[in-house]
């Protein structure tokens, strides 16, 4: 996951963000965010990708950025699945990129 850990982000700030500093963890690793950041922005401002695809393992970073494609699912506290693009960070938020083993079956 070399690229995922790289210090350089895919996203680039266009303007300043004033929100208070917020600490989150992603797969156990601490990550600095700011109040108002979405999980996806917080991660992609610091990394080139969000996660590995569950079929094939290629890197993914979300796609639609508006809640339609579901390519940016992450897990909160190992119990709730959310879209990184539409979920705002909160202090101490614990994010895991892979599903816990007991993920419910898909929805078709």
């Amino acid at each position: 996951m070399k690229n995922v850990q790289a210090g350089v982000g895919q996203f680039v700030p266009a303007v300043r963000r004033h929100g208070a500093p917020i600490r989150i963890t992603v797969d156990g690793e601490a990550l600095d965010a700011r109040a108002g950041d979405s999980i996806l922005a917080a991660v992609l401002l610091r990394r080139r990708a969000l996660r590995r695809h569950e079929f094939g393992g290629e890197l993914r970073a979300g796609f639609c950025l508006m809640g339609a494609c579901q390519d940016c699912w992450v897990w909160l506290d190992r119990e709730r699945r959310v879209r990184a693009c539409t979920t705002t960070v909160t202090e101490g938020m614990r994010i895991d990129l892979d599903a816990p083993d007991e993920e419910p079956a898909s929805f078709d």
Binding site: N3, Q10, R48, A49, L50, H53, E58, L59, R60, A61, G62, F63, C64, L65, M66, C69
Partner: peptide
């Protein structure tokens, strides 16, 4: 599907 490709609306 590469990271860095997003929708235009996105």
């Amino acid at each position: 599907t590469k990271p860095g490709v997003f929708t235009l609306g996105g």
